[in-house]
Simulated assay, not measured.
Amino acid sequence: MTNKIYNFCAGPAMLPAAVMQQAQEEFLNWQGLGCSVMEVSHRSPEYIAMAAEAEADLRDLLNISDDYAVLFMHAGGRGQFCSIPMNLLPEGGVADHVITGAWSEGAVAECKKYGQANIISNVTYVDGKKTIAPQSEWQFSSDASYVHYCPNETVDGVEFDFVPKTDAPLVADMSSCILSREINVNDYDLIYAGAQKNIGPSGLAIVIVRKSLLGKARGYTPSIFDYQQQESFDSMLNTPPTYAWYLAGLVFKWLKAQGGVAAIEKQNIAKAELLYDVIDNGEFYESRVVKAHRSRMNVPFYLKNESLNDLFLKEAKQAGLVALKGHRSVGGMRASIYNAMPYEGVKALTDFMLDFAKKHG
């Protein structure tokens, strides 16, 4: 078995090696305080300064204006499935939803607990491959409080190649694509992302919300999920996930050192092209997503002879390529190639795939 391991897990996902090295070096003695950042009060001047710097770096990376609040919240991306309707959906209101996979389905299920979730577009297939229906076919509500969609579906590997144009506030679940490509934050009214893919460890969620939407939470909304209260307390209404916040800050620094989002997007394009070329150029593997809507971050693929699945996973693990089994709901294989996955990792995977196909094809 190789000593070099490449982790293709969809989340919690690998973090940049340089970030992990720095966190290890600082683990017992952060900023010369003689203790770990995990042991420091979130009210201490050192921690408050670190948190503010992390927010400033994220704002810089995504060019987030002062019109938006940036919140570091509990409960990951799924926690926002309920937080969003509690903050944006009035009693008896309706929210429009686009379904393109498992996570947008999950948002619908949670929204239904608080009001009406109107599905304006559902998963579409062309020649057996998943795709996204053009916006001209969507059935918008006339009185929607917001429109929710997932630009990149982690499980299904479906990614939007356009930003929807809506009259109602646009809400985007960017858990698996945030910071992977350039976006215009001003196109959105609320962006949220679980941290465990391109930001840091699990348990943390980033929320970027237009300030004009604050102050509309339902009376029973728990304080830690109330955007207005969290903004008022700088995301420290109670003890935040301090270590996750610290690691996110290190990741933001690392990303800026790579040249920022524009530079990392070029790397992500190269990685995805390399992998999809191997999937497409042969008779051994296949993708079940229309090319225009394939994800750069999460690449599901299938062996045409699925009786070889277990052997593929076994030999891949022996080659140091781990966490390639597809989600239980869709089967097959899945390679998640987030920002922290180096090009060399994808090259190791494609070399293995070509060799496996040669031996068993």
Score class of each variant (00 low, 15 high):
residue 175 S to N: 08
residue 285 Y to S: 03
residue 294 R to G: 04
residue 187 D to S: 12
residue 257 A to K: 07
residue 305 N to P: 11
residue 206 I to P: 04
residue 360 H to G: 11
residue 298 N to A: 09
residue 313 L to C: 10
residue 206 I to H: 05
residue 246 Y to S: 12
residue 237 L to P: 13
residue 96 D to L: 15
residue 6 Y to C: 07
residue 79 G to M: 03
residue 173 D to K: 00
residue 148 H to L: 15
residue 228 Q to L: 08
residue 303 L to W: 11
residue 357 A to N: 03
residue 250 L to N: 13
residue 265 E to M: 05
residue 65 S to H: 03
residue 274 L to K: 14
residue 227 Y to D: 06
residue 204 L to R: 04
residue 52 A to K: 08
residue 246 Y to V: 12
residue 160 F to L: 09
residue 127 D to E: 14
residue 206 I to L: 15
residue 21 Q to D: 13
residue 123 V to K: 15
residue 339 N to M: 08
residue 150 C to I: 02
residue 73 M to Y: 01
residue 263 A to R: 02
residue 111 C to Y: 05
residue 273 E to Y: 02
residue 308 L to A: 11
residue 249 G to F: 14
residue 250 L to W: 15
residue 142 S to G: 10
residue 107 A to I: 02
residue 126 V to R: 15
residue 143 D to Q: 11
residue 13 A to K: 05
residue 269 I to F: 10
residue 116 Q to W: 08
residue 306 E to V: 09
residue 122 N to E: 06
residue 37 V to I: 08
residue 63 N to D: 08
residue 129 K to E: 11
residue 105 E to C: 01
residue 54 A to I: 06
residue 113 K to I: 10
residue 147 V to I: 11
residue 329 S to F: 11
residue 360 H to T: 06
residue 29 N to I: 10
residue 187 D to I: 12
residue 360 H to A: 07
residue 303 L to E: 12
residue 65 S to M: 04
residue 15 L to Q: 15
residue 251 V to P: 13
residue 358 K to W: 03
residue 313 L to K: 11
residue 53 E to Q: 15
residue 58 L to C: 10
residue 138 W to C: 07
residue 278 V to W: 01
residue 113 K to N: 15
residue 272 A to W: 09
residue 24 Q to L: 05
residue 97 H to M: 01
residue 38 M to R: 13
residue 360 H to W: 06
residue 86 M to N: 00
residue 227 Y to R: 07
residue 57 D to E: 08
residue 214 L to V: 14
residue 70 V to L: 09
residue 214 L to A: 08
residue 124 T to N: 11
residue 19 V to A: 04
residue 213 L to Y: 04
residue 112 K to C: 13
residue 248 A to C: 10
residue 361 G to A: 13
residue 299 V to Q: 01
residue 201 P to T: 02
residue 98 V to N: 00
residue 207 V to N: 06
residue 245 W to H: 07
residue 219 G to P: 00
residue 103 W to L: 15
residue 336 S to T: 05
residue 221 T to D: 05
residue 169 P to W: 02
residue 278 V to H: 03
residue 96 D to I: 15
residue 230 Q to R: 14
residue 150 C to T: 14
residue 169 P to G: 09
residue 143 D to G: 02
residue 346 V to Y: 00
residue 308 L to C: 07
residue 327 H to S: 07
residue 306 E to R: 10
residue 88 L to K: 06
residue 248 A to N: 00
residue 68 Y to E: 07
residue 353 M to T: 08
residue 35 C to Q: 09
residue 353 M to E: 08
residue 290 V to F: 13
residue 24 Q to V: 05
residue 193 A to T: 05
residue 179 L to A: 05
residue 64 I to G: 12
residue 332 G to L: 02
residue 93 G to H: 11
residue 53 E to N: 15
residue 200 G to E: 05
residue 144 A to Y: 14
residue 272 A to R: 09
residue 174 M to A: 02
residue 252 F to S: 04
residue 149 Y to M: 14
residue 114 Y to L: 03
residue 232 S to G: 00
residue 199 I to G: 00
residue 105 E to M: 01
residue 341 M to P: 01
residue 21 Q to N: 06
residue 212 S to Q: 09
residue 350 T to P: 01
residue 211 K to M: 04
residue 78 R to H: 06
residue 124 T to H: 13
